[in-house]
Nucleic acid binder design. Structure first.
Length: 223
DNA sequence: TACCAGGAGAAAA
DNA sequence: TTTTCTCATGGT
């Protein structure tokens, strides 16, 4: 039995509140599934604006393809993705991901595998943790996997739905059980959480009763 | 100047 | 098993 077991309907209610407030989110911004996979690695502990610079550099240098990333020198790749930070580390991780995809027969062949095989495979790649793997599965491969990130933990903590320190899989399973398999809803929910967290869950006065930011979508926040 | 941003893995306790 | 450290740049 999971420790993260919110009351029936609570997570869906929260989604509706966020959706009403922020509307539909165009998420994830990318021109191809492979670009999403690359972006998922580059966005590790990085601001998205810096990731965009790195992706633009990869495009400008013709490096945004599996073959190009397999062929490019480590130093050149690192230089291209420098704006996203940790460029040496991320260059290795991108290479690891590309070598893995190549062993699967390419991105398209990997996309045709079962979800369990895809997730297990990605998590076996050095540098691909659960959040990065699930970003790739949900946004690049349109798989029904809920992404848990720092913002999700922060939101659950704010709404007293979880401690925030629960294991990744426990939170993911909790969301998936509560919502049911729905790729579009998972994508929107995660996007809304990020949008909301950026706007009101940091450095803002919080409701003394529920700890939610003063401008929380419930509208009942009081600073 | 200090802190944070759409983490993950290795090392230490 | 849990916590801490490392990787690094750019914006606020």
């Amino acid at each position: 039995m999971s420790g993260f077991a919110p009351a029936d309907g609570v997570l869906l209610d929260l989604y509706r509140l966020l959706a009403d407030r922020y509307g539909e989110q165009p998420w994830w911004p990318a021109e191809s599934p492979f670009e999403i996979a690359v972006g998922a690695v580059l966005t590790q502990n990085a601001a998205w604006a810096n990731v965009e610079k790195a992706i633009a550099a990869l495009k400008a240098q013709g490096l945004l393809s599996l073959k190009a990333l397999l062929d490019v020198e480590h130093a050149s790749l690192g230089e291209a993705i420098r704006p996203s930070g940790y460029y040496n580390l991320k260059a290795k991780r991108l290479r690891n991901l590309c070598e893995f995809l190549d062993r699967q027969g390419g991105f398209e062949a990997f996309a045709a595998q079962s979800l369990s095989d895809q997730r297990e495979g990605l998590l076996g790649v050095n540098g691909i943790g659960p959040e990065t793997a699930d970003d790739i599965l949900l946004y690049a491969l349109q798989r029904p996997v809920f992404v848990i990130d720092t913002y999700t933990r922060r939101l659950l903590q704010r709404y007293r739905l979880a401690d925030g320190s629960e294991p990744y899989e426990e939170l993911r399973n909790g969301f998936e059980r509560a919502i049911g398999p729905d790729v579009y809803l998972y994508q929107q929910y995660h996007a809304l959480i990020v949008i909301h967290a950026k706007q009101v869950c940091r450095k803002t006065p919080h409701c003394a009763r529920c700890s939610v930011a003063r401008h929380c979508p419930t509208g009942n926040g009081r600073s």
